[in-house]
Every structure is written in structure tokens, then in C-alpha cells.
Write a protein that binds this DNA or RNA. Structure first.
Lengths: 78, 78
DNA sequence: ATGTGACTTAAAGTCCGTT
DNA sequence: GAACGGACTTTAAGTCACA
């Protein structure tokens, strides 16, 4: 259960981007998603392997869909 | 952490569909993904709230991407 | 070849505080 | 506002016996 860790960073970046795009603080997002503020911080820093339910909650709070939070954000991804 | 459970079923359906599409047994998939056979069974039955790392491992074994396993499979959806 | 509940042990997720 | 530490509770990971 140690590999495939790239996905963690994908989510981290996606969440942070989406949150900032909405002009929310981590605390705002945590409140919206029903999560702890420190947990959101950890997700954005790529130190948490969150579950799909948490992903769905974050997605909802961020006005997006769960699958979008798993798409690597590469500028030239096409 | 109780709501948003819909995502669980989305993954369940997506995994089972992808697996059958490849003509694999649950045991085959489990082996490929480095998971237990019964664990795969539980994911497909929607009784597990798996983490994104597990999702990534399943995705790789299923020759797909993690985000695709989170897309609801509605035939009249897109 | 799959479903299922029970189980142990890691880790998810919370709460409080400090920098 | 956010990174970080640590102690804490709950749940996922991983596996088994049996159907």
C-alpha cells in the first residue's frame, strides 16, 4: 500500500486550486465539507490518503465532481 | 462521514464493469492490484469506503485511470 | 469463482493548541 | 489564514473461515 502515491498529490493540487478559485479559506472549505480544518490542510499538503467519501464531500463543497479532483492538472494535458 | 455514500456505488459499478470488460475474475484483479480477493469482492458490492490509493491500484490493474472509476455510469449521460 | 461477517492493526479523521 | 504537533476516537486495510 505504498506505491500509487502520486494520486495523493493530484488531489492535493486539485483541492487547493479549486478552493482558491472559489476564494475560500481552508476553514471555510472544512466547514462546507463537514471536515476538520486541520484535515483539509493536510489533504492540500499531500499528507493524507483520503477516502472516496471524503473526496465526494470535498467535491461538493468545491462545486465540482469527485472525478475532477483526481485528474492531474497538467497545463499541456490535452 | 455518513452521507455521500452514492460514490461508493459508483465505484462498485465501475470496477465490476471494467473487470468484466477485461474478462478477469475478482481473483485475477486482486492479484493484479495487490489486494485480497475478498476485498475486491467487497468493493464491487459497495460495502467498502476505499481510499484513493486503493482506487489508484484498482485503476491501474483495470487499465484505466482513477478518475474514470468515479464517473457514474449512466447510459444517457453523455 | 463469489459473498459475507468477524476479526486485528494500521491509518483515517477530530480536537486542542502553538507557531 | 495556514503549517504543524500530539493525543485521541473511529474506520479502512487486509485477511480468514465458511457458505
Amino acid at each position: 500500500m505504498e506505491d500509487e502515491t502520486g494520486i495523493i498529490d493530484v488531489v492535493a493540487v486539485a483541492v487547493r486550486r479549486a478552493r482558491k478559485g472559489l476564494g475560500l479559506s481552508q476553514e471555510d472549505l472544512a466547514l462546507e465539507a463537514g471536515l476538520d480544518r486541520t484535515y483539509v490542510s493536510q489533504v492540500e499538503r499531500g499528507t493524507r490518503n483520503c477516502t472516496i467519501i471524503v473526496l465526494a464531500r470535498l467535491a461538493r463543497a468545491l462545486k465540482t465532481t469527485p472525478d475532477r479532483l483526481l485528474v492531474p492538472h497538467k497545463r499541456s494535458r490535452g
